[in-house]
Write a protein that binds this DNA or RNA. Structure first.
Lengths: 248, 248
DNA sequence: CGACCGTTTGAATGCCCTCAATACGCGTGG
DNA sequence: CCACGCGTATTGAGGGCATTCAAACGGTCG
């Protein structure tokens, strides 16, 4: 939590924003001077809960998180998975009441940034406001793509599509290469994200594995047949709006 | 298309923004001086298509539109329905390539505003940028709610939830009252929005009607048992983030 | 009137769910 | 060091919600 290490944390934010926008030196400097507090959170810990009115937002530095909502009878819907560089509750800057929860999946390191500072920053630097705005728009684009899956695709297509998406997202921030990436989520998580039962996720995974398209062991996913995966899942990366390649 | 009528059009935009934010006189004036061209579009006409790179965005003045994407074998997913006051392709301001299409459902009157003008406006007035940003965030919140439906709710719950949502959205802009609202969409549209076949939508509608919860005739929806509707569909309006009531 | 689109109904199928039990992996504690 | 607990993964069986295919009905428009 020293000033030095906090600046280092915010470098990750700069890198993320530069993967979707062009920043001036002044804007970069402004980001580095954001106040932030870094915390290490245990797996399965909530960062913000449905109904909360947060006064800060969080930048994920390491580990995985997800946004979700719990319904009655224990049903759960996961809306998104988040990795290093993401600000999963950026929306709370302008939607003051949380309409869902945000929690860690793995142990995670996160940096908290006060809303007040973010508001000053975006008011002063319209270019940064646009970059952050864009980030939330990509978020929404991913929601739409998941809607397609849940509305119109088979379990096979949904799971394959999710794997392609996560691989590209991780690759974009240098956390994946060679069709290999970490995937520290359970089959229950996958089911809750895609609207499937854990039983059916299991059977479908066996199907995908059996066709030789992927391997998935020890929280590591290897996509062995990329072309076939994107074909059967109708995956088109346009919606991720990855205009530039981040450094690996 | 006279200057006078265009200013009148933009009054609707001011009213919409004031339902989610507070504007200064200067900001209101700035919106009124936006250039715009008004067009009347036929039903089923595309405003922007998947893959397009629009240079303007559109404000709906009258009629209904929807965002959607077509997959192979004629499958279609509708992401959202839009009514007067909405700017359904506002995202194109910062995501330059359309990852889905936008089209009319009914005959519709829309005002087109150049991206360039929107960018100047949001750069100059951070408060307006925040208001527009907030609008896209509410959009995303609605996506999340639809994901819950498609992932975890029955056809009955999904349809009932959609009806509650559309009623409140219409009420917020003065287009509905007394649990009665226009609903100019086909059962096919409902199915494509909620991930159901038109056949099952039809049977489920009969079920909902049979229970005396609604009537739906001549493109008019009447919610006869609001409490029961929100209970069975687990509808909680928080996600719409309607902080203020717009004038009726 | 005929064409067309949306609605309605029937029948058969199927994808996925629920319930249930077993197996596996891992960390904790005896 | 092994037993135990716990969460996850796996397998089996049965059932249900929703789908697909098909056909008939109804309203609107040219």
């Amino acid at each position: 939590m020293s000033s030095a290490s906090e600046n280092h944390s915010l470098t990750l934010l700069i890198r993320k924003l530069e993967s979707i926008a062009t920043l001036t030196d002044e804007e970069r400097q402004a980001i580095l001077s954001l106040p932030s507090k870094t915390r290490v959170l245990a797996p399965g810990q909530d960062i913000a809960r449905d109904g909360d009115k947060p006064s800060q937002c969080c930048l994920i530095l390491d580990g995985w998180a997800c946004r979700y909502k719990v319904l009655n009878k224990g049903r759960r819907q996961i809306f998104s998975f988040h990795i290093a560089g993401d600000i999963p509750d950026l929306q709370s800057l302008h939607l003051h009441t949380m309409d869902h929860s945000l929690g860690t999946i793995t142990q995670a390191t996160v940096a908290f940034i006060p809303h007040e500072s973010m508001r000053e920053l975006t008011t002063r630097y319209p270019g940064l406001a646009a970059a952050f705005w864009r980030d939330t728009l990509v978020d929404a684009a991913i929601f739409r793509e998941w809607m397609i899956g849940m509305g119109r695709k088979s379990a096979f297509g949904r799971i394959a599509h999710l794997f392609c998406e996560m691989y590209l997202k991780l690759q974009a921030v240098g956390l994946a290469r060679g069709y290999r990436c970490p995937l520290p989520i359970t089959q229950i998580d996958i089911g809750d994200a895609l609207g499937l039962s854990n039983v059916h996720v299991n059977r479908t995974l066996q199907d995908i594995r059996g066709k030789g398209l992927i391997t998935l062991r020890d929280n590591t996913l290897v996509i062995q047949a990329w072309e076939e995966m994107i074909r059967t899942s109708e995956f088109d990366p346009t919606y991720l709006h990855l205009e530039k390649r981040a450094a690996g």
